[in-house]
Design a protein around this nucleic acid. Sequence first.
DNA 1: ATGACTTATTCTCCATCTGAGTTTATGTCA
DNA 2: TGACATAAACTCAGATGGAGAATAAGTCAT
Lengths: 294, 294
Amino acid sequence: MSESLAYAELIAVLVAVTDNEPRVMTIDAGEALPSGPFETSHRTLQSGLRAWVESQTGHPVGYLEQLYTFADRDRALDAGTGAAQTRHISIGYLGLVREQVTLGAGRPEWRSWYEYFPWEDHRDGRPDLLTGLSERLLDWAGDHEVRRQRVDFLFGLNGQLWNEDLVLQRYELIYEAELEKEAGFGRQMASDHRRILATGITRLRAKIKYYPVVFELMPDSFTLLDLQRMTEALAGVRLHKSNFRRQVDQQNLIEETGEMSSETGGRPAKLFRYRPAVVEASSLSGARLPYSRH
Amino acid sequence: MSESLAYAELIAVLVAVTDNEPRVMTIDAGEALPSGPFETSHRTLQSGLRAWVESQTGHPVGYLEQLYTFADRDRALDAGTGAAQTRHISIGYLGLVREQVTLGAGRPEWRSWYEYFPWEDHRDGRPDLLTGLSERLLDWAGDHEVRRQRVDFLFGLNGQLWNEDLVLQRYELIYEAELEKEAGFGRQMASDHRRILATGITRLRAKIKYYPVVFELMPDSFTLLDLQRMTEALAGVRLHKSNFRRQVDQQNLIEETGEMSSETGGRPAKLFRYRPAVVEASSLSGARLPYSRH
DNA sequence: ATGACTTATTCTCCATCTGAGTTTATGTCA
DNA sequence: TGACATAAACTCAGATGGAGAATAAGTCAT
């Protein structure tokens, strides 16, 4: 029975956006994601994480969702000995906070997530760094047709479109090609934290498409362009202005406050607020099956 | 430090489909989902689960994905005492197997998941049981406008459409209304296993829309109607025949084997096989952002 | 005050997709 | 042989989505 006892910790991918830059909370001079033991005093995982994060950031966490449970981190340590050793289980969470005032000890810092994944920011066009990176990946792929296709597909080569959702898959390819520790290909982190961060970004980029989580990061009132910039910051991609607007108001999730913003540099913009959703959101799904009435 | 030691177990929602009925593997005469300790000998969570499941079912698990980690099960036990007590962490997995030959001990059985959630099967129209159930839910909602809207939305009342994805949310509403133990509202399970099952069904119903997992449950060759029936079994909803076909071959995931099936009762149907995907699947996504070229 | 420049907001257009059937083909079975 | 079943292909109108033009309403340098 004691075989199954494990050391359980919580680990957080905490996201905030300032100056159109998506940031993640880090400790150890940007080398690690914040984490802590899962104490018996915590009623649930969720509440444990929430309490702990709020004491660190000084701000309520608007949105919190479980990401993934990682348990194969320490396998290198186990190998060979065969000794019964305490298992390490990390339960990852994704949290969104509106502002980033840091209070806690250990000098937590908010850093742009593009420091860790510089190839993921396509807002000003395809990053230059991608040239060198994809060259290295293609070298690695060599004649291996499947590998080559994967590189093309994941990095938008050979006429394929860039798909911003595939953050984790891209990182894993880079890892497989053993390029993840190369200088110039993004800042590194301790242990597998960079992978966990990639998992969080992936989840968030997918989620904003079918669930109104962006508003957890927006201030109470905002212009449509603010909202677009926020979405672009997260997705790492530019969006089509008028089509973005059309989509937003079809979804019926925002309403005018009646006031205007004058800090636009051009024509003043209407201010909007989030309208906490008709009913439970959803139904804005996306993928559908071809239903049949009857 | 020892505060954070926890007992870790794996728990599986194992799904197979036979006779157009989606089935889940259970133990204890259908009262529990199969689970086991996460042993140190297991290299990773995934491999631990896989080995253990295959020894139980005698069949390889085609598809396996982590569902959720549950840790707030035993809170009732902790309450009041404040004593340091071993935490119980369950890591849930969803697995798909093509056939269901059971070998293991403890008399595992495959049971239709609709035994546990009879209101979820709308293939032959709205189940009668929903009349009584929604009546009880509306009673519970009373004048509470928000509750009433939630009931309407989740159970497709008042002109709203039935959304088959909301399995977990429906179960949680029923739980909140304290109707989950009432006779007639589905077979019960030990502890929170019914909730875990609901989580699995929810995940699977969502997934089939944007990822070709159905094929993990199909035999090597099949007709288009077979594929449709499989999808309907999982979604619990009837689909539009020709539109389903159109969608399937737009996705380019299957190809004709060249042979025909004669067991249709009508005109013989072409047989198809799964074509393990152009590249990594995806790009059949669904929800999209309004991208901008530039 | 005026014209250049910026950003906001509204429209338009057209190609594609989707929902909901029809129509025609090809078997089995009484 | 005709009734019945299912398969497979085709139709068509309305909704959706990508792309960009047109118009509105500010700021700012001259």
